[in-house]
């Protein structure tokens, strides 16, 4: 299988002029055959698609048939609990805090800020709303708030 045949002369080849004329024929043949085969494929695929689409539309019509009576679907009753009331002042305070937080974060880091970072905890303390922006924890009427409620005015 792995025998290495020893060659003493160049591989046997037909005369040069015969090869050249064969090459011309091959090029012409390859062009004609490839366009012919791909042309036939183009038509076949087009016909196949048309046939499939026609078959599918027919089947769809058959499946549709007479209109079926609409059955009523019972929708379970959804109970929505009322959202906790928040005063406009509280919302305004929270929005201001968020604005300042975003502005602070988006500010270019260069040159490095020398001022101490703002404690957003402090900023957002209002009667019944607190937002811990430093840790991305948003608490609204939370137990945590309840814990600190007594310290508020």
């Amino acid at each position: 299988m792995f025998e290495v045949p020893l060659a003493t002369q160049t591989i046997l080849q037909p005369p040069r002029d015969v090869q050249l004329s064969a090459g011309m024929v091959l090029a012409a043949l390859a062009i004609i055959v490839s366009f012919l085969v791909l042309g036939i494929l183009t038509i076949s695929i087009k016909l196949m698609s048309m046939g499939v689409l026609k078959y599918l539309s027919r089947r769809e019509k058959k499946v549709k048939g007479p209109p079926t009576p609409v059955t009523e679907i019972k929708v379970p009753e959804v109970r929505v609990e009322a959202a906790p009331e928040v005063t406009p002042e509280e919302v305004a305070a929270a929005v201001t805090a968020v604005h300042r937080f975003i502005a602070e974060r988006l500010r270019p880091a260069v040159p490095a800020p020398t001022a101490r970072p703002v404690n957003y905890w402090v900023m957002t303390w209002r009667r019944d709303i607190c937002i811990n922006l430093n840790e991305y924890i948003y608490v609204l009427r939370s137990r945590k708030f309840q814990k600190y409620k007594r310290h508020l005015i």
Binding site: A30, I31, S34, F35, L38, G39, T42, I45
Partner: peptide
Amino acid sequence: PYTFLLGAAAQLGVFM
């Protein structure tokens, strides 16, 4: 399916 013909035309390099 007409793009089959573009595939055939791009064989020009093979023949030339």
